[in-house]
Write a protein that binds this DNA or RNA. Structure first.
Length: 387
DNA sequence: TTATGCGGGCATT
DNA sequence: AATGCCCGCATAA
């Protein structure tokens, strides 16, 4: 990020003005423009210092959605909703699969759920998970502001995300649905429940053979048609993560280069339901080889590629994995990745500047507590004897 | 159970 | 005073 924030803003406003888009406002202005000629498509991945004006009819804007993991932040201003980015959950081992995919999980928005999430293990190498916090706004998390004014919803983003994109909200929701289906299919036992915990967290999926069974509520797994745009209103609305990926005529401002990055497994689910229309979008890169960090029996996991793609490992036995949550910190030299690094090596991006945070030692999450997330190798060795 | 929003409160600048 | 963020609470999905 070599450009200054002001440069970025100016460039974007130049670009926006060329498109006849009104950007000469700030979210804190007493009066916001109401002579808006054109509203924006909903932006799934707003980044940098962008502004958007959405229609107040836009469901996603109404809900202040984002595919970034944004949490509410109190700014002591009830008129302007402020949200700050939670970053992305990565593998503390910085493990990769054979095809170079990284694990980028979506941090839970709810504090309690996020703490629970951080006690779990990497779905790929079983190493510790690490919350990579966002520091894209002067060392602080990127902030998004939402303000409802008249028939418009004004959106402003401050800061450029300095971390990879997490899995989308849609993927997380689909996972939860699948987890529910699993719960219905497999009556609870403590062991199964813990397995499901991991699957819920990581996106681990049932075997493909089992999927049709689990897709008993097909609509649940289809992408919501209202997530991704609003102008078309009645039909043809671009879907978040849909195969079409992009709106038919999106605005240039804040163009979302990632909107076409459909998670492979969602594509696969869509393919299962609508093969004739979805087939051209299928991703041929669904891995067929074993990922490097896990026993083949555990590879029904969600893998997120560098570009945000998601795919599944080959079929797996859902009983082949055991949770290591809430175990004492231990060396994880046998933790799936062979050979493992001698210490966690988060390398998602250089962190040259410490953020101006206070009471860092008191913080209950983020990089500083990754040491608590290590897994119990006794359990792990039991399940994954060294070859 | 989790996401979301609100607002009190505290520390820092 | 502005800002950042923690926390608890309430509500919705």
């Amino acid at each position: 990020m070599l450009k200054g924030a002001d440069d970025v803003v100016m460039e974007q406003e130049d670009s926006a003005s060329r498109h006849g888009i009104l950007t000469s406002w700030d979210i804190n202005d007493i009066k916001l423009p109401q002579d808006v000629r054109q509203t924006d498509w909903f932006q799934e991945w707003p980044d940098s210092y962008v502004k958007h004006i959405y229609s107040s009819e836009d469901k996603n804007a109404q809900r202040h959605h984002s595919s970034w993991a944004m949490r509410n932040t109190n700014n002591h201003n009830s008129r302007i909703l402020k949200k700050s980015c939670l970053g992305v959950v990565v593998c503390g081992n910085d493990c990769s699969t054979l095809d170079g995919r990284k694990i980028y999980l979506r941090p839970a928005i709810c504090d309690k759920a996020r703490q629970k999430q951080q006690r779990k293990c990497c779905p790929n190498c079983n190493g510790p998970l690490q919350l990579l916090s966002c520091r894209g706004h002067g060392g602080y998390p990127v902030t998004n502001f939402w303000r409802h004014e008249g028939q418009f919803i004004f959106f402003q983003s401050k800061g450029a995300h300095d971390h990879p994109r997490p899995e989308t909200k849609l993927e997380a929701e689909a996972r939860r649905s699948i987890q529910k289906a699993q719960t219905a299919l497999f009556p609870s036992s403590p062991r199964l429940r813990r397995i499901r915990d991991i699957e819920s967290l990581t996106g681990a999926m049932p075997t493909r053979e089992a999927l049709p069974l689990l897709l008993s509520k097909p609509d649940t797994y289809m992408l919501p048609a209202n997530f991704g745009g609003h102008l078309s209103k009645s039909s043809g609305e671009p879907m978040l993560g849909s195969c079409s990926g992009r709106p038919p005529y999106p605005r240039a401002a804040g163009e979302d280069e990632g909107s076409g990055e459909t998670p492979t497994w969602i594509k696969s689910l869509a393919l299962e339901r609508t093969p004739s229309t979805r087939r051209p979008c299928s991703d041929p890169a669904i891995p067929t080889a074993d990922p490097p960090c896990a026993d083949p029996s555990t590879q029904h996991i969600l893998l997120v590629a560098k570009g945000g793609h998601v795919s599944f490992g080959p079929n797996a036995d859902p009983l082949g994995i055991e949770s290591c949550e809430e175990k004492s910190p231990l060396d994880y030299s046998g933790g799936g990745c062979l050979p493992p690094p001698p210490y966690p090596v988060p390398q998602v991006g250089p962190r040259l500047l410490e953020p101006p945070r206070r009471n860092v030692g008191d913080r209950s999450e983020g990089e500083h507590r990754m040491g608590l997330n290590y897994c119990n190798n006794d359990v792990f060795f039991h399940l994954y004897p060294l070859r």
